[in-house]
Amino acid sequence: MISAASTITAAGDGFTAPGPANFEYPELFSVGGVDVTKPMVQLVLAGILVLAFFWMASRRAAMVPGRLQFAGEGAYNFVRNSVGRDIIGSHDFQRFVPYLVALFFFVLVNNLFASIPFIQFPTFSRSSMAYALAGLSWLIYNGVGIAKHGFVGYLKLQSIPSGVPAAMYPLLVPLEFFSNILVRPVTLALRLFANMFAGHLLLILFATGGLYLVSEYGGAVGVISGIAAWVMAILVSFLEILVQFLQAYVFVLLNAMYIQGALADEH
């Protein structure tokens, strides 16, 4: 996609291809010397929305749920059971449910912002937001692992694969340590950030490219290909909704798997 954009740019038709600049927002206002930008407002808004929804859905705690409570329970159960209980196991999962539920819906709403009119920006295409959650995840799964096995025990658990001859240790131990301790937070953050970033970039490209083709390039070719680009933009929008959901799911699923791995008795 980038190469296509640069080709057009190279053709010298004056089309401004979307780039990282599209992800830089000017400050809306400033609070105590901190410039507040649109993604930051979105972040807070997402937190408020998630909390408001769940608070209202769970407030009445009726035996026979109303419509809102039913929806809330369905959403809560999805994370609680299919992520928490099924991955972490019924013995330990309960204490991680608040974390997993908050995480999944926080990421999901922030991702869905990319497809909501007038917001139309995925918060986690700001990489630092993703770094924060990935770093938190790293602290949590390592923390529960050390709390359960002790520092040395936990390092052994994560670095020394069981059922492997000791002769292989010099090769495998650094590899396991690298993949389980060092790489995980990076991939976690980059996966979320890059998906949101690329999806948004793609949408901007089709939307602005279509506009350019119809209005600037002109002619039958320009109009037809411009409309085709807009159709693609709509299709990509639907694809992006799927990606937004999947990335939130994968993020929280990997969190649960890392926690499960840290709590496991055998590697």
């Binding site: 972040l43 937190g47 630092s128 937001m129 959650l133």
Partner: peptide, 11 residues
Amino acid sequence: PVEIVLSLIVF
């Protein structure tokens, strides 16, 4: 840094 801190606080 601002975004990281804000994310952590909000979450």
